[in-house]
């Protein structure tokens, strides 16, 4: 039963993909490539790009920035999240501040971060950090607050020791929050870093996209968008695979 739905799911993706590409191809006939490149032109542009050193260098630079911003958000989000999860007062104090950080659009942060940190590359990392930090913060705080106290009491009475308690209670109880936080942040991280680089990038995927854009090379913009979308999806899939969690489908 489970296997068959998964199969159907995979086939569903395949059919949807073929359908979308077909519609895209048909609509593209009506437009010049500079407005809407066809799937074939986009594929050619992608192959052409992938043969250049700049393609891989840009990906590397962007990936490094993403990792830095992501890492900062992860560490500080988990630390502060655990703290406020345990101390209600700290949560009540910090929550409004983090909500404000989350409410400000990443684009606004980008413009401010350029002023504060310059355009050198720090600003992009900061924006990724600010976009992802609240997600870790709230997920971990929630995870800690939802820890099953009854099970922890039971473990205490039975003197299981902290290693076993962490492995058997903390990890599984917090796992849904972890998976959710990581899956949201890796996907969002790619989009945010590229957006930040488009606005102000000297280097990286977004900067190259912007150059393609002002040179009216829409096929390259399309190819890059495709690459970034794939990276986001693949990163999310890797997170879910590693953590053993299925993608939550709200319809099912």
């Amino acid at each position: 039963m489970k296997a068959s739905t998964t199969n159907l799911n995979k086939r569903g993706y395949l059919y949807t993909g073929i359908g979308l590409v077909t519609v895209w191809g048909i609509v593209a006939i009506a437009y010049p490539a500079v407005v809407l490149p066809s799937p074939y032109e986009t594929l050619l542009a992608l192959l052409e790009l992938s043969r250049t050193a700049q393609f891989w260098h840009s990906l590397g630079v962007t990936f490094w920035r993403l990792t830095a911003g992501f890492g900062l958000a992860l560490v500080s989000g988990v630390l502060l999240g655990s703290l406020v999860g345990h101390k209600l007062v700290a949560y009540q104090l910090l929550r409004p501040a983090v909500l404000v950080v989350q409410a400000v659009p990443p684009v606004s942060w980008m413009l401010l971060a350029i002023l504060w940190f310059g355009v050198g590359g720090g600003a992009q990392i900061v924006v990724v950090f600010l976009a992802l930090f609240p997600i870790f913060f709230f997920h971990i705080a929630q995870a800690v607050r939802q820890l099953p106290t009854d099970l922890l009491e039971m473990a205490k009475v039975y003197e299981t020791g902290w290693i076993k308690t962490i492995r058997a209670i903390y990890v599984p109880a917090m796992k849904p929050y972890w998976i959710s936080a990581l899956a949201i942040t890796v996907g969002m991280g790619w989009k945010t870093i590229v957006m930040a680089e488009v606005i102000s990038g000297q280097t990286g995927v977004g900067a190259v996209m912007n150059t393609s854009r002002i040179y009216l090379q829409t096929d390259e913009v399309m190819a890059w968008s495709f690459v970034v979308a794939c990276l986001g999806v693949v990163s999310e899939a890797i997170v879910r695979k590693l953590s053993g969690g299925e993608r939550h489908d709200p319809i099912r």
Partner: peptide, 11 residues
């Protein structure tokens, strides 16, 4: 160093 005109003005 590259940036859009409004950002350059601010910087």
């Amino acid at each position: 160093v590259y940036a859009a005109v409004p950002e350059i003005m601010q910087l």
